[in-house]
């Protein structure tokens, strides 16, 4: 596989594994208020150094959760067009798991 293809595939996979619904561990039907509350809770837990907050489950295993990732996920879900995209992918993952 060529270098460009390899990194493109890796980036695509990374984007899927950083789906905001996975990062925040919220249902795809969650309201924006619930999402904001969950994000604040996770940020507080990360700031306190709680081990249960520093990883999140994905269908391909656990991944590290950082405050930046949580903030980015929240901002993604505030945009309706971006939320539509993430919701679409997260629906399939939830059904599979």
């Amino acid at each position: 596989m060529a270098i460009a293809q390899s990194s493109a595939i890796h980036n695509l996979l990374l984007r899927h594994l950083e789906n905001p619904f996975l990062v925040l561990e919220v249902a795809v039907t969650a309201e924006i208020g619930d999402i904001e509350r969950q994000a604040q809770k996770l940020l507080a837990m990360l700031a306190a150094g709680l081990v249960e907050a520093d990883r999140y489950p994905t269908p391909l295993g656990q991944r590290a959760r950082t405050p930046e990732l949580v903030r980015m996920a929240t901002s993604e879900l505030r945009d309706p067009a971006r939320r539509l995209l993430h919701e679409f992918w997260a629906c399939g993952w939830r059904r599979a798991s």
Binding site: I9, L13, H16, P59, C91, G92, W93, A96
Partner: peptide, 18 residues
């Protein structure tokens, strides 16, 4: 029966592993 989106990501994961 597995959702196509999960299968899509599984294939991406395989390709990513080389």
């Amino acid at each position: 029966a597995v959702d196509v989106r999960a299968r899509h990501v599984a294939l991406l994961a395989s390709a990513s592993r080389g």
